[in-house]
């Protein structure tokens, strides 16, 4: 039996309810203290009262702000780094080992250090978020740009395209998943100019194609 996507979603939702129910049941049955494991009903109640009294809102805003800034910074830097490494063998050889090693360091372990260096403000949070999304974006950009097929590269060579044109008008769109290629590109590249400042702006404005970073 093959469930339809709708059925699959319903099943997932049902499973969620069952798990919540189990959790509630376990807490009540064993009489666990809220300090050890609060029941879902208690969590919901606390959440509601926090939201209703307005106590949570400034914190939610700060968290979202940090998240958004970190995501943007990490994505842009990851994207640019991926493009640079994809375009230059030398850069890749020299820098890739460091990038990989830096990934082995658990990011959260850096939190106390960052707080020490940058204080308690927004900056350390943004930096850690940026660090977390930097790597997947760089890696995906690098592999995406490298998988352009030889025939289309020859086509661009035949048409006398510059390196930048080949990057922006062939490798970048080829690296996107087909669904995005189809919807984002036609209007984006329609009569797209060969002048590069405007192309550059477009490349930056365009949504990153990688899977969302696991934050």
């Amino acid at each position: 039996m093959n469930p339809t996507p709708m059925q699959a979603r319903l099943l997932a939702a049902a499973l969620f309810l069952v798990l919540l129910g189990l959790w509630e049941l376990v807490v009540r049955q064993w009489g666990l203290s809220a300090l050890v494991l609060p029941a879902p009903s208690a969590v919901a109640q606390a959440l509601w009262s926090g939201l209703a009294s307005g106590y949570f809102w400034p914190h939610v805003r700060a968290t979202l702000q940090a998240l958004f800034l970190g995501l943007a910074a990490g994505s842009i830097v990851g994207l640019l780094a991926g493009m640079a490494l994809a375009e230059s063998e030398l850069l890749e050889r020299v820098l890739k080992p460091y990038v990989v090693v830096s990934q082995v360091v658990p990011k959260l372990a850096l939190a106390p250090l960052f707080v020490l260096w940058f204080g308690f403000g927004m900056l350390p949070t943004v930096l850690i978020t940026a660090l977390i999304c930097f790597f997947p974006l760089m890696e995906n950009t690098l592999t995406g740009l490298r998988q352009t097929d030889a025939q289309r590269l020859q086509l661009f060579r035949m048409l006398g395209a510059t390196r930048l044109q080949t990057l922006l008008r062939l490798k970048l769109p080829m690296g996107l998943p087909p669904s995005l290629r189809g919807c984002a590109w036609p209007w984006c590249w329609r009569w797209s100019a060969s002048s590069w400042p405007s192309s550059w702006v477009r490349a930056k404005a365009w949504a990153p194609w990688s899977s969302p970073p696991r934050a």
């Binding site: 025939q151 289309r152 086509l155 661009f156 048409l159 006398g160 395209a161 044109q165 008008r169 062939l170 769109p173 087909p178 290629r181 189809g182 590109w185 036609p186 590249w189 329609r190 009569w191 797209s192 100019a193 060969s194 002048s195």
Partner: peptide, 23 residues
């Protein structure tokens, strides 16, 4: 093999050699 760019319309594919030189 045709080697078209599948994110461009047929017309834009034909215009590719032009658009790589100038607008």
């Amino acid at each position: 093999a045709p080697t078209l760019l599948d994110w461009l319309s047929a017309l834009d594919n034909v215009l590719l050699p032009v658009s790589l030189q100038r607008r």
